[in-house]
Each structure stands twice: as structure tokens, then as C-alpha cells.
Design a protein around this nucleic acid. Structure first.
Length: 476
RNA sequence: GGCGACAUAGCCAAGUGGCAAGGCAGAGGACUGCAAAUCCUUUAUCCCCGGUUCGAAUCCGGGUGUCGCCUCCA
């Protein structure tokens, strides 16, 4: 039984998909006018883990995340760069794909673009006009909030409260100050499409309603994004979608908390935006993933280089235990487990159960990681014991970690650039120096290999080596 | 003005009624030729003041502080 906090009710609620065994998730994606930043990354990483976890729990998940490729910011950027809006979108979608891949984020099942769903958008607007929830004024179409009684349900505010706090300019063509644009009349030199109301382009909110329902049906199981989308974006999506269909738009509204940078909200005006593009130059992007997962998704978190380094070291600890397991597994045989080994296998089982329990409870990734650390300690203790280890004890533990990696996705799989034969030769030579107690010569070999990114470790079971790839050295 | 979040060790961070998880850093020890890795030991008046309760970090009331949303925003 998986529980998720639902913004619309303010409670954790059991996930009950529309169709048993299937889950449709729609997450609001980026406006592709620039590189995305570490705050955006928090949302993308959360939804990546959510869909991976639901998949692990046996659901058939369809995950949709849009690209907003037409709006004011896109148009502005195209002018600045002296290229078309389409070209801006192509550049930053490609960058998005590269940067998310570096963060271990899997591609969604669908990444629809607003400009490729104009017919669906127009159809939805027409339904709203037919239902007397939208009106056309001189080629602009607005949503009539006063005609939709549930307006404000998500942000828990009524219309009067919203108006009193609003800092918007009054557009006198609107029936109500909070009415928002579904369709914007064409302006000179901007991309536009034919519609029943004349040439124009979609408003910001309508694309998500249109595309989510097109791919996932009229009631989504899970919809969400960053907390700042609650109002107005998701509020407006509810109005548009429910206004058209008369059905609940999403069963679960999931919103991810902010990630601040050095205790400040990131914003262009403060000039403190850290993009993943930039982060990738100075640190391991997977350390950011680990850092983000080490706190609960609804709590605000603060980012700094220091915290990222702490996270990188913790992540390294888990990667090391996996490395330790793999290394030892190649040197041991099967046998019947003794009492202490049975106790370890019992612990493995209880860790598995505990991990599922904490993840089922509103995706508590912080506790889940603690479980992985707990098992790591017991495993390391076992690997240290002089009586030796058994394959049929080590293997299930390694399998567990591999399973967990399909959810959390921060494990490293290093490969060596140096030829293994050459390496074995150097190790053998160093062993000879060590036998002769020629420590300086032995250490020279170790230092030389380290410069090439290969770490030698002397263990009671013999010398072993591992590769540290350049971009994966943690923070640099 | 309206709505809301957060405050737990040097740092990060779980825990929402029953002896305060986990990670990072520090100190001491074991192991090691030295390293690396690992293990052991060690570190908390849970922001303040009241209340409810046999029992509160957890529930209620009141403070204080930090921050967010109500405008484009993840």
C-alpha cells in the first residue's frame, strides 16, 4: 500500500490508480529557453525516483513530462539569440537530455511539446467555450474563473483572497481580474496557429491540461511539479480540465519543496542560479542526486558546495561496499551458512522490508538511504571477519543493492582505460618490491597508477584495484 | 492583508505519543611497511513559555526566528 501526500486534501492518501496495476504520472517539465538549474533538478529527480519506485513495486507506469516550447520567454530568447523559437527549443531540449542523463534521470515515456499538440489545445478551449467557462474577446480567449465554483481548491484560497493579494494589472477586457488567457491573439513576428478565434498561440496553462489528458486520459493518477506551480499553474489546470470534462483531473497532487542556494531562493535577478551545465563542470552530478534524495521531498533544502561534498562522501561509502562485495565474490565459494551468516541474511530480509515500508510511506528516500547504510555496516563487518565469507551470502546482498540501484540510480560502474595486462604486470612488480621491503619503489608504482585514476589497495586477500573516472571523483 | 512551510548534535538529516535513525566532520583505539578500505568507542536540556497525557521532539495554545506563495517561476 503506497501512500502519497496529496496537496489538494493536505493528507497522505493511499495511491488508488484509476486502473488497477497501472499508474499514469504527468510532471510539469521545463520551458526550454535556457539550461535548467539545481532546483528544477530536484523536481525531475524526485519524479524519476517516484516512477522507478512504482515500477519496482509492480505498477505499469506511464510517465509523461512536457516541454513548454512556446511562451513569452521562448519568444524573447529567440529574439536575443537571433534564431527561431523552434531552434531555441531544439537547442535546450538537447541540453536537457544530456543534463538529465548525467543526473541518472531516465527519459519519460512521452515528452510532448506544446507546439505539436495545437489541435488538442484548440479542442479543449472549444469545449470550455461550449460549457460557458471561457469567452473570446477580440481574438483572445480567457477562462471565466467566476463561472467555475471550485476555483481556488488546490491553493486553499477563495477568489476574494486571491484578488486582494494580487499584484496584477487589471485588464478591463476580463470579466474577473483572475481570469487567465487560454489563447493569445497573434502579435507581429511571433509564431502563431490558425484557430476558430483567429491566429494566435496557446496560453501557458492550457498545454498541460491538453497534453496530460491526451496521453493519460481525463483523470490522471498523479500530477505534480515544484511547489511554486500550485498557484496559479495547477489551479488553472484543474479549472481547465474539470471545466471541460466534469471529472476529477488528478487523484494525487504531488509537489516538491524548494531547493535554495546558500539560503536564498535562486532567481535570475539575484544572479544566483546554478545550472546543471555549470555543476557538471565542478562536481559529480550523481552527488547532487544523492544529496537531494537524502532529504524528504516535501521539505525545503538548502544547497551548498559543502553539503554536496558531504553527500558525495556518503554516496562513496555505499559504492565502496558494493565494490567490496563484487571484489570478494570473485574469491569465495558456496557453503552452508553458519549462525552469524544466517543473522546477516535475516538482516538483509528485514532491510528489504523496511525499505519498502519507508518508501511506501510518502517516498521517504532519506530513511531508505539510512537502511542502505545500515546494511552496509553489517556487510563490511562480515567482509572483515577472519573466518572467511561465502558466495551464497554475498550474492543476495549484492543483488539487493543492484535492485535498489534500479530505484535510486547513483551507483557507479567504472571501467578501466588502462590495459589490464599492463596493470597486472605493474602490480606484480610492486609486490616484488614489497617482498624486498623496497617501500619507495613500491609506493612509486602506486602513486603512478593513482595519477592515472587507479587506486591500489592491499588487503589480506591480496592486492585489488579500482578505477576512479575523472568526472566521478566527487566534488573537485 | 490572506494562505502556508520550517526550527532535532559541529554540519546535513529521519523520526509526528512510549529508551532520539542514518550520513559527514572531530577525538581515541584496532588493522596496515606506509596508504587505502573497514571495524570498535565517543558526541543531543529535540527554538522558548504554558497546557493535555502515566508518558510529548511528536498533540493543543501562545511566543520567537527563518523562509515561501498570493506576479513569470521547479
Amino acid at each position: 500500500m503506497i501512500k502519497l501526500y496529496n496537496t489538494i486534501t493536505g493528507r497522505k492518501e493511499t495511491l488508488k490508480p484509476v486502473t488497477d496495476g497501472k499508474v499514469g504520472i504527468y510532471a510539469c517539465g521545463p520551458t526550454v529557453y535556457d539550461y535548467f538549474h539545481i532546483g528544477n533538478a530536484r523536481v525531475f529527480i524526485f519524479f524519476d525516483v517516484l516512477r522507478r519506485y512504482l515500477n519496482y513495486r509492480g505498477y505499469n507506469v506511464t510517465f509523461v513530462q512536457n516541454y513548454t516550447d512556446i511562451d513569452d520567454k521562448m519568444i524573447k530568447r529567440a529574439r536575443e539569440m537571433g534564431i527561431s523559437v523552434k531552434e531555441v527549443a531544439d537547442i535546450f531540449i538537447k541540453a536537457y537530455e544530456e543534463d538529465t542523463a548525467a543526473l541518472g534521470i531516465l527519459p519519460a515515456d512521452h515528452h510532448p511539446r506544446a507546439t505539436e499538440h495545437i489541435p488538442q489545445i484548440i479542442g479543449l478551449i472549444q469545449r470550455l467555450i461550449d460549457n460557458n467557462l471561457a469567452y473570446d474577446v477580440e481574438g483572445d480567449v480567457f477562462f471565466d474563473v467566476a463561472a467555475f465554483p471550485d476555483y481556488g481548491i488546490l491553493s486553499q484560497q477563495n477568489l476574494e483572497e486571491l484578488v486582494s493579494g494580487a499584484r496584477v494589472e487589471i485588464d478591463h477586457r476580463k470579466r474577473h481580474p483572475m481570469d487567465f488567457a487560454l489563447w493569445k491573439k497573434e502579435k507581429e513576428g511571433e509564431p502563431s496557429w490558425e484557430s476558430p478565434w483567429g491566429r494566435g498561440r496557446p496560453g501557458w496553462h492550457i498545454e498541460c491540461s491538453a497534453m496530460s489528458m491526451y496521453y493519460l486520459g481525463e483523470t490522471l493518477d498523479i500530477h505534480g511539479g515544484g511547489q511554486d506551480l500550485i498557484f496559479p499553474h495547477h489551479e488553472n489546470e484543474i479549472a481547465q480540465s474539470q471545466g471541460a470534462t466534469g471529472k476529477p483531473f488528478a487523484r494525487h497532487w504531488v509537489h516538491v519543496g524548494y531547493l535554495n542556494l546558500e539560503h536564498e531562493k535562486m532567481s535570475k535577478s539575484l544572479g544566483n542560479v546554478l545550472t546543471i551545465r555549470e555543476l557538471r563542470k565542478i562536481a559529480d552530478p550523481l552527488a547532487l542526486r544523492f544529496f537531494i534524495l537524502s532529504a524528504h521531498y516535501r521539505n525545503p533544502i538548502n544547497f551548498s558546495r559543502e553539503y554536496l561534498e558531504q553527500a558525495a562522501k556518503g554516496m562513496e561509502r555505499l559504492n565502496t561496499v558494493i565494490y567490496n562485495l563484487k571484489d570478494r565474490l570473485g574469491r569465495v565459494d558456496t557453503g552452508s551458512p553458519d549462525d552469524r551468516e544466517n543473522a546477516l541474511l535475516d538482516l538483509l530480509q528485514s532491510c528489504r522490508e523496511k525499505l519498502i515500508a519507508v518508501m511506501d510511506d510518502d517516498l521517504n528516500t532519506a530513511e531508505a538511504l539510512a537502511v542502505l547504510f545500515e546494511l552496509a555496516k553489517a556487510t563490511n563487518t562480515y567482509l572483515n571477519r577472519p573466518e572467511g565469507q561465502k558466495k551464497n551470502v554475498l550474492e543476495p546482498i549484492l543483488n539487493f543493492y543492484n535492485d535498489m540501484d534500479t530505484i535510486f540510480g547513483f551507483m557507479k560502474n567504472e571501467s578501466s582505460a588502462i590495459l589490464e595486462k599492463e596493470l597486472e604486470e605493474l602490480i606484480a612488480r610492486r609486490e616484488e618490491y614489497r617482498r624486498q621491503k623496497e617501500w619507495a619503489s613500491a609506493d612509486a608504482i602506486r602513486d603512478r597508477l593513482k595519477e592515472q585514476g587507479i587506486i591500489l589497495e592491499d588487503t589480506p586477500q591480496g592486492v585489488r584495484w579500482k578505477v576512479i573516472a575523472d568526472e566521478k571523483k566527487g566534488t573537485k
